[in-house]
């Protein structure tokens, strides 16, 4: 992926993030707040899981371009996945950030962060939404 494409994807999701609002029936959703202690990113994530499948995710809050776009892309990629598939996807994403072997195919637009490791202070921004959603997925009892 070239630099222009990366930038285009990130800015597109930053300027027009998907599902960036508190969901209408928020009582049907599990909620987690995720924030970055070393900076000011602060996201609320709402997730609806049924029969082990992620049915819906919303988010809200204030965060930088990297965190916001990463959350939007994550939501796009995770809706419809089973918990197991979601964890595999997240694992792949984390491996990419940590410069470990990973499966490019499943990540699609999230590949825009494949060279974020070069900016150490932004790596956590990209991972922040995943950190939040993992807290819910790890605690989920089917």
């Amino acid at each position: 992926m070239d630099e222009d494409t990366r930038r285009e994807i990130i800015l597109d999701h930053y300027n027009n993030p998907i599902h960036k609002k508190v969901p209408n029936n928020k009582e049907e959703y599990e909620f987690v707040n995720t924030n970055n202690s070393s900076c000011i990113d602060n996201l609320d994530i709402y997730i609806k899981i049924k029969d082990n499948i992620i049915k819906d995710i919303y988010f809200d809050g204030e965060a930088c371009a990297i965190s916001t776009s990463s959350c939007s892309i994550m939501i796009h990629n995770l809706i419809g996945k089973t918990i197991k598939e979601a964890k595999e996807y997240i694992n792949n994403f984390q491996n990419m950030l940590d410069e470990l072997p990973y499966n490019e195919e499943v990540l699609n637009e999230a590949l825009a962060y494949n060279n974020i490791y070069k900016q150490n202070n932004r790596k956590h921004c990209a991972y922040l939404p995943y950190e939040g959603i993992l807290k819910i997925l790890n605690n989920y009892q089917s």
Binding site: C39, I40, D41, E62, A63, C64, A65, T68, Q119, N121, R122
Partner: peptide, 8 residues
């Protein structure tokens, strides 16, 4: 523009 993005 989010302040942190300006700082970066």
């Amino acid at each position: 523009i989010f302040s942190q993005d300006v700082a970066y």
